[in-house]
Write a protein that binds this DNA or RNA. Sequence first.
DNA 1: CAATAATCGAGACGGTACGTCTTGTCTTCAC
DNA 2: GTGAAGACAAGACGTACCGTCTCGATTATTG
Lengths: 212, 212, 212, 212
Amino acid sequence: MRKSDSSNVTRKPRNPGRPRSESSRTSIFSAVLKLLATKSLRDISIEEIAFEAGVSKATVYRWWSNKTQLAIDAFLNDISVKAPFVVRGTITDTIVSQVHALADQYRGRDGEILRQIIAECQASPEDMKIFHQKFLFLRREEAKRYIRIARKDGVIASKLDDDTIIDMIYGPIYYRLLLRHARIDKSFVKSIVDHVFKQFGPIAVANIRPQS
Amino acid sequence: MRKSDSSNVTRKPRNPGRPRSESSRTSIFSAVLKLLATKSLRDISIEEIAFEAGVSKATVYRWWSNKTQLAIDAFLNDISVKAPFVVRGTITDTIVSQVHALADQYRGRDGEILRQIIAECQASPEDMKIFHQKFLFLRREEAKRYIRIARKDGVIASKLDDDTIIDMIYGPIYYRLLLRHARIDKSFVKSIVDHVFKQFGPIAVANIRPQS
Amino acid sequence: MRKSDSSNVTRKPRNPGRPRSESSRTSIFSAVLKLLATKSLRDISIEEIAFEAGVSKATVYRWWSNKTQLAIDAFLNDISVKAPFVVRGTITDTIVSQVHALADQYRGRDGEILRQIIAECQASPEDMKIFHQKFLFLRREEAKRYIRIARKDGVIASKLDDDTIIDMIYGPIYYRLLLRHARIDKSFVKSIVDHVFKQFGPIAVANIRPQS
Amino acid sequence: MRKSDSSNVTRKPRNPGRPRSESSRTSIFSAVLKLLATKSLRDISIEEIAFEAGVSKATVYRWWSNKTQLAIDAFLNDISVKAPFVVRGTITDTIVSQVHALADQYRGRDGEILRQIIAECQASPEDMKIFHQKFLFLRREEAKRYIRIARKDGVIASKLDDDTIIDMIYGPIYYRLLLRHARIDKSFVKSIVDHVFKQFGPIAVANIRPQS
DNA sequence: CAATAATCGAGACGGTACGTCTTGTCTTCAC
DNA sequence: GTGAAGACAAGACGTACCGTCTCGATTATTG
C-alpha cells in the first residue's frame, strides 16, 4: 500500500504534530460546570479550572482567550437545547410550550450559569458579541421563525416587529433571571404569554385554542 | 426657654473621635463615576478609585465593604431620580411618561452604570440584596402606587398582580439594557406601554375590536 | 514678694494645663512589658500597646518618639538594677559576684527584653545612642570604677585600658545573649571571670582569694 | 557503549517545568546588598528589593520565606570567607591572624550587614536557627578544629571546653560589633588574643612570672 | 469663678508595605 | 505540534500599622 492510498479521499488534511486532546477539552468543560455549581463565574480562576481538570493552564489559554468564552462553550456543549420549539397543536401552543420549557430550564442550574455568563459579558463588548453570536441570536432567530409562522397563520395581527414581540415575551423572564426580585414561576410565565397572545388581533383572541 | 432646655432639645449625640471627612466621601463618589465613564466596574480597582479620589485605600474600605456597594452608593448619590412619576393628565399619561423618561435615562450613562452594577451583583447575593433594598424595591414600590391608582381609575381591570404588571412594562427595557441586542429607542418603549395599556381595562378591550 | 521668691527653692515651675497622667505612664510601661512576655518587640505595634494600656495612640506618641525608646524607658523603669556591685570581701569578689548576678538576670526575662532592645537599635543610630546614654554607658562607668579600684589594689596589673577589660568580661556574655548559640550558665561565667582575673598580674594569681 | 547506556549514566533527574531563573537569583542578591549599603535591613522592604532587582514580588517570595533569610543567603553568596584560617607559622599564628582578618572584615560593610542580620534574627527563633546552621555553626566548627590542633600542640593546656574558648576570643569582638560602644581596632583585637593565648598553656603561664 | 492651656480618649485620615492571589506568558522536557 | 509542569512579571487584593489630625471632655493653673 502506498502512502497516497492511506490518506484516502475523505480524510481531511491532518495537521502534523500531536493532535489536540479531546479528553482535555471535555475535562475542562466538566471542571467549569462543576465549579460553577459551587461559586460564581467571577470567583472561579482559570488556575482553578486547570487544576480541577487535571490540565495545565497553558492548555486552557491555548484554546480559549478568556474565562467567559470558555464558560460559554462549556455551557453550550452541555445544554444542547433543553427548550426546543416542538411543533404540536397550534403555533400558539408551540410557542407557549417553548416559553414554559425555557422558564423551567432557567429556574435551575442553567439559569444560574446563564446569569453568570451575561454578568461577565457586561465588562467586555467582545465577549458579549460572542455570546450574541453563539447563543442569543441563534435562539432569537429560531423564535422569529415561529413568530413569522404565527403571523402567517393570523395568530399575530400586530404590526410590531419580530424583535419587539420576542422582547415582550422573553424580556420579563430575563428581567427576573437577572434582577432576582421574584421567581420565574409558571403562573408568571402564563400571565406573560397570555397577555402577549390575547393582544395580537381579534382572531388571536377568538382562536386562541380553537383546534383543541 | 432656658439654656438647659435648648441644649436638651437641639444637641445631637456627637460621636467621639475625629468626624468623618465629607470631602473624602464626595471625592470618592466623583472618582468612581469618573472612572466608570472610561471602563467597566469590573476593570476598576479600589486602588485606582482611592488614587483618583486622593484618598487612602483604608478610607475606602472603612466605609464600603466592596466596590459594588460603593458603586451603588455613588450611583444613588448622583442620580436623585431623573425619571419621576409626574402627575399630569390621566394616570396612564403619568405612567407612560415615566417609562419614557426612564428609557431616556437608561440609554445614557446611567444605563451603563446600572448595567455594571447589576452585573457585579450576580457574583454576590449580599450585594444583590443591597441593590434591591437601596434601589430596585424603592422604585418598584413607587411604581406600584401608580399601578394601584390606575386600577382604582379603571384603567387597569386585569387581575394580574402588581409585580407582574411592572415586569411586563420594565422587563423588556431591562432585557435590552442587559443583553444589548437592540437599542431601547422611543418606538420600542411606545410599543411596550401601548401593548400593556391597550390590553388592560374594558375600554382598551372594547377598542381592539373595531379593527376587525 | 518677688517672683524668684514665690517660686521657692524646692518648687519646680509647674506648667499650666492638665498635668500629665501618671497612671497613663505606668500602664503604658506595664503594657509594653506584658506584651514583651509574649512576642518580640518588633512584632508589637504601638496601637497594641495603647490598646493594652487603655490609652490613646496619641498619648503614647506625645511622650515617646518611637517604640524602641519607649521600651528602653519601660525596661529601666522596671529593673532598677538587679545586678549591683556589692562591696563585700575583696574587690575581685565584688566584681565576680556582680558578673554572676548579671548573668542570672540575663538568663531570664530581662535578657530577653534587652536582646529585643539591642536588636531594634541596630536600625537606628539615634536609638542606639539613647540606649548608650540611658543604659550601657552608665553601667560601664560603674564597672570602670570597680576596675580602677582593682587596679589600685594591685589585683589588676595589666596595662590594658578599662574598656578592653570590661569587654573581655562582659563581651562573651553579651555574645551568648545575642547570638544564642549556647546558654549563659554559671560555669561559663566562672570560666570567663577566672580567666580574666588569673591573667592580670602575679599578685592577682597569688591573691585571688587570700582573705577568705 | 550504546545510547541508552550513556543516557542512563549521565542524565541528571531534570525537574519538569520552566527552570528557575539564575539571573533573577543573582539580581535579587545584588539588590539586597546594594540597598543594605544605604539603609538598615529593617528599613528595606521586599517590594523595594523586587523593584531594584527588576523582579516580581512573587518571585522573591517563591524562594525565600522572609527578608531575613534572603539577606542571609545574599550575604553568604557574596562573602565566600574573607577571613580563612591560613596555616602558616605556629598554630597560634594561624588563629591570631584569622581573628585579625575577621575583625578587619567586620569593621567594614560585612560587619554592618551581619549586625543587621543578627538584629532581625532576634524577632524570629526560626531565622536565628537558620543563621546558626548556615553561618555561625559552620564558622565555629572550623574554629574548633584549630583550637583542637592548638591543644594537641600544647599551646592550649586549659581544660576549658572549645565553645568557651571560642567565646572568649570572638565574644568581645561581636560585643563591640553589636553594641557599637567602641571600635574593633587592631589593638583591641591584639589585646584579646594576647590575653587568651598568654593564659593557656604552660609556657604562657611560665612567662607571666618574669614581670613580677 | 471664669479664662486659659495642656492632656486625654476616640477614632478618622493619607500613606506604605505586607504576603497572597490571579493573570497571561514563557521555558523546558515528554509524547 | 500539543501537553504538563511550573517559573515569571505584573499588579490588585484586603489588612495592618504608621504617625498625624481633629474632635469634645477633662483637669489643672492663673487672673
